[in-house]
């Protein structure tokens, strides 16, 4: 298995508050890893340290075996140029979509390709249409985001990230802002991506998705990984009381027998 993301001894503090207290994690090519944890446990922060939306306070991140940044008397040093380049290789999808309102759906999916990767417009448009096809929205290419449903917006956001040909995709509670009846279409798209072999790191409260799609589930608690393993094991027969309490809090989740 090729290793895509490697995180070693990751710490992150905001002022006096230490949110991540030493995380070690590797994600292999084609793997879908789901991060669970209660609110404030540091899930988003962990995800945002992978693509350096937040700069780690300590520890190292590597992509494809290449260390991000350079070591400099004990600490790490990052150059903005290097981080921009890194982010083109890591797709991120947000809870609130964050589509560009002044561009059409097609424009949204082309933007990064043209402005950042320097692809020609026809090439970017081709690619954008392929990705929209992939998320089932080929017919919405000319619409503006304001005219789309939440589920459609989120699928456009996924297409926008995919168009950059990322090595790994990060999803941060991408269904939490959706009406319940729209959650399914987004989860279906994500499942399809996983089956196509995309490497994914997913923060979600959808335990059904974790159970059926994840290769591995991690349970984050107060900034450390408290438990991890195959979903069938971790979700059905957790070792820690914390994890058990967390699962009981999700009464909507019914495990198939």
């Amino acid at each position: 298995m090729t290793e895509i993301v490697r995180i070693e001894n990751l710490h992150k503090s905001f002022g006096p508050l230490e949110v991540l207290k030493g995380i070690d994690l590797t994600v292999d090519s084609g793997e879908t890893v789901v991060l669970l944890g209660s609110s404030g446990s540091g899930k988003s922060t962990l995800l945002r340290c992978v693509n350096f939306m937040e700069t780690p306070s300590e520890g190292q991140v590597s992509l494809h075996g290449e260390l991000v940044g350079s070591e400099n008397n004990g600490g790490m040093q990052y150059r903005e140029r290097e981080l921009c380049k890194l982010r083109t290789r890591i797709g991120m999808v947000f809870q609130h979509f964050n589509l560009f309102p002044h561009m059409t759906v097609l424009g949204n999916v082309m933007e990064g390709q043209v402005t950042v990767l320097g692809r020609s417009k026809p090439e970017a448009e081709d690619k954008a249409r392929q990705q929209l096809e992939r998320v089932g929205l080929a017919d919405k290419a000319e619409e503006y985001p304001a005219r789309l449903s939440g589920g459609q917006k989120q699928r456009v956001a996924i297409a926008r990230a995919l168009a950059m040909d990322p090595d790994v995709m990060l999803f941060d509670e991408v269904t939490s802002a959706l009406d319940p009846e729209l959650v399914g279409e987004v989860l279906k798209t994500m499942r399809q991506l996983a089956e196509e072999g995309m490497t994914m790191l997913v923060v979600t409260h959808e335990l059904g998705f974790a159970y059926h799609v994840a290769n591995r589930v991690l349970f984050l608690h107060e900034g450390t990984i408290l438990e991890q393993g195959e979903p069938q094991k971790v979700l059905k027969d957790p070792e820690t009381t914390r994890m058990r309490e967390f699962l009981e809090g999700h009464s909507l989740f019914k495990l198939p027998d």
Binding site: M92, F94, N98, G112, V116
Partner: peptide, 14 residues
């Protein structure tokens, strides 16, 4: 909205 800055940054924009 700050999310717009985040979205630009996340696709590698300066």
């Amino acid at each position: 909205e700050p999310g717009q800055w985040e979205a630009g940054k996340a696709i590698g924009m300066t």
